Amino acid sequence: MHITCPNCSTKFSLPDEMFKDGAKARCTVCDEVFPLIETSEHNVAAELQEEITLSEPPAMEEVEAPEGNLDSLIGDEDAFGLGEKKKKKSGNGCLIFFLIILLLGGAGAGAWYLAPDLVKSFLPLEEKKQSVSATSENDVSRISLKNISQYYITNEKIGQIFVIEGDAENRFSVPKELITVEATLYDANNAVLASKKQLAGSSVSLFQLQVLAKDELAEALDNKVEILANNTNIMPTKTVHFMVVFYDPPKGVAEFGVKVVEAKNPPAQ
């Protein structure tokens, strides 16, 4: 017997035994669910109307019902449908896609654990920049020392002291801060006699070098307020002054050397 979907007008050919009370059909074209018996009556009225008017309806696509056990044609709502296999196929496709994502995620995690350097080589440019920035935190290659001088001076409370001072210039294209220098004293055989590190940014006057006690001089040269004021956010081409004082310097000093040992990047704004 022929039936027509009331929603999209697609025609179907079904076995007569499927037309029973309560039976429903599901259209495989638009998924409309409708009663078989009511649809059958509607089709009979339509056919009578066609005979009276003697007009031919436009050709409609006719879909044959699948052959086989009729029970297999009944859906969850006792409705016939040819679209069930499509839905199951779609479900299988989603499952396969999910499994592929899991496998790729596991492979990525394993690669990060076993070969992090290899994975980092494929990072986006911005992430690479951040990584390079982290490794160059203490890069001092472009901090230049200039106007360096050294001299002995007699302090009335300590005795003879040895002073090295100068300027550290930032030649990077970005700001630097907390620049630290290291001064070293050598004898005639180039052996190290004494070495001392000092944060730049603080200094004392010639008069203070002559009259302040050892603790007072050390406290003045390590003054955190002065260091933070002068040795932070040093812009490119700008300089910061440093002063290193050796109390009771060793005998036989023939040479001295000064180098930058630390220069940090300002914290990100």
Rank of each mutant, 00 (worst) to 15 (best):
I3N: 01
P6E: 07
P6N: 06
P6M: 09
C8A: 05
S9L: 12
T10S: 12
K11S: 10
E17Q: 12
F19I: 15
K20Q: 14
G22L: 11
A23H: 14
A23F: 14
C27Y: 10
T28E: 10
C30L: 14
E32Y: 15
E32D: 14
F34Y: 14
T39G: 11
E41C: 00
H42D: 09
A46F: 08
E47L: 11
E47D: 08
L48S: 03
L48D: 04
E50I: 02
T53S: 12
L54N: 13
S55G: 09
M60N: 12
E61P: 04
V63I: 15
E64T: 13
P66E: 13
P66F: 09
P66I: 08
P66S: 11
L70R: 06
S72K: 11
I74G: 04
G75L: 07
E77G: 11
G81N: 07
G83F: 05
G83R: 07
G83N: 10
E84R: 13
E84K: 11
E84I: 07
K85D: 13
K88F: 07
G91F: 07
N92D: 04
N92K: 12
C94E: 09
L95S: 15
I100N: 08
I100P: 01
L103W: 02
A107V: 02
A109D: 06
A109G: 09
L118M: 13
S121V: 01
S121A: 14
F122V: 06
P124L: 07
L125Q: 10
Q130L: 11
S133A: 11
A134W: 06
E137K: 08
V140Y: 03
V140K: 01
V140M: 03
V140Q: 00
S141V: 01
K146Q: 07
K146C: 02
S149Q: 11
Y151F: 15
N155E: 01
E156Q: 15
G159H: 05
V163N: 01
V163D: 00
E165N: 14
E165C: 06
D167Y: 08
A168M: 08
A168Y: 08
A168S: 15
R171F: 03
F172E: 06
F172G: 02
V174S: 14
V174N: 10
P175C: 05
P175Q: 14
K176R: 15
E177F: 02
I179A: 05
Y186E: 06
D187N: 15
D187E: 00
D187G: 08
A188R: 12
V192Q: 10
L193M: 04
A194N: 09
K197R: 15
A200C: 11
A200H: 04
A200K: 02
S202M: 00
V204T: 10
S205F: 03
L212S: 09
D215M: 02
E216G: 06
L217Y: 03
D222V: 03
N223F: 03
E226F: 01
A229Y: 08
N230I: 00
N230G: 04
N231P: 03
N233M: 04
V240H: 06
V240N: 05
M243S: 00
D248Y: 04
P249F: 05
P249Q: 02
P250D: 07
G252S: 10
G252I: 12
A254W: 02
G257Y: 07
V260E: 06
V261G: 04
K264Y: 05
K264P: 04
P266H: 10
Q269M: 09
Q269R: 11
